[in-house]
């Protein structure tokens, strides 16, 4: 059963490499296959619980997580995000609308006019720049706080990434390819850790499933003692793969985020989530 999926998942990549005849990926079929894979692999984990990442695989860690949630360490960061929002409210409301609960769920999306993926963070900085404000630094600090504020206000809403054009489909496919392809000195791919070996341990770290990967971002990580964006996490994983990471908000990471988010469609947003 695992084999079957592995073949399905690697089909696109292998087919392109081996024959150069190009089989277009159908994102929705792809997503359903991935969901089925995880459902069969762990029948006890409910679909809607996949926003919980690696915690689903360990009762101990889940208990620790729940006790942390009693006094969440990220509340100050959300307050900081709210303060940032209030400070330039007119600017943000002009870009995103004044209902702060309706922003997070729109991202990421494929921006047809610019032929690229727009993420919440890239939109925040574009909005600031257009208003003559200095853009925030990517990955942590104010950008993550503001993004966390929008995420917090959208908690419980379902990830709903749309693919309605060939451009969007291609962006998905590019992200998927990056996810599947072994790279770097260790010959690792994202899929090796987060799909084929999800639930196993690398040293003491339990590997999360990619289903649900984007739901909790930006996350508050104990190791960072602060918030970090999804692209910060991508950077960290690529470093562990002994790769020179791409830049935050590079086209590569935007496509990767688009793929990871689409795959997580239907799961509840719960940013900023607590992670070890």
């Amino acid at each position: 059963m695992k084999k079957a999926l592995l073949i399905a998942l690697s089909l696109g990549v292998t087919a392109t490499a081996a024959t150069a005849t190009y089989a277009a990926v159908d994102p929705e079929k792809d997503r359903q296959e991935l969901v089925n894979f995880f459902m069969k692999k762990n029948p006890n984990i409910k679909f809607e619980d996949y926003h919980m990442g690696a915690y689903n695989y360990s009762a101990d860690k889940m208990a620790q997580y729940e006790s942390v949630e009693e006094f969440p360490p990220y509340l100050d960061a959300i307050d900081a995000g709210e303060a940032l929002y209030e400070k330039d409210k007119a600017v943000y409301d002009k870009c995103f609308g004044s209902d702060v609960s309706k922003v997070r769920v729109k991202y990421p999306y494929y921006e047809e006019s610019k032929h690229r993926v727009q993420t919440l963070e890239s939109a925040i900085n574009e909005c600031r720049t257009a208003a003559g404000l200095k853009p925030f630094k990517w990955k942590k600090g104010p950008i993550a706080q503001l993004s966390a504020y929008y995420a917090y206000n959208a908690r419980g809403q379902k990830i709903n990434v749309k693919i309605n054009s060939e451009g969007a489909r291609k962006a998905y496919e590019a992200g998927r390819k990056m996810y599947m392809t072994p790279m770097g000195q260790l010959n690792l791919s994202c899929a090796k850790c987060h799909t084929y070996n999800a639930g196993r341990r690398a040293r003491a770290n339990i590997l999360s499933p990619n289903l649900g990967h984007t739901t909790g971002f930006p996350v508050f990580r104990a190791k960072w003692q602060a918030l970090g964006t999804l692209h910060r996490r991508f950077t960290g994983c690529q470093k562990n793969m002994r790769l020179k990471p791409f830049k935050a908000q590079s086209p590569e990471y935007r496509n990767l985020e688009f793929f990871e988010a689409y795959i997580s469609n239907g799961l509840p947003i719960d940013g900023p989530a607590y992670r070890e």
Binding site: S10, T14, M180, L186, N187, L188, K192, C193, Y196, N197
Partner: peptide, 22 residues
């Protein structure tokens, strides 16, 4: 070394220590 894979290499986590000069 990485010469012999028990699982196809695009799936196996076992790094090819020799082939990739690790």
């Amino acid at each position: 070394y990485g010469k012999k894979a028990r699982v196809p290499k695009d799936i196996s986590m076992m790094p090819p220590f020799g082939e990739h000069a690790i």
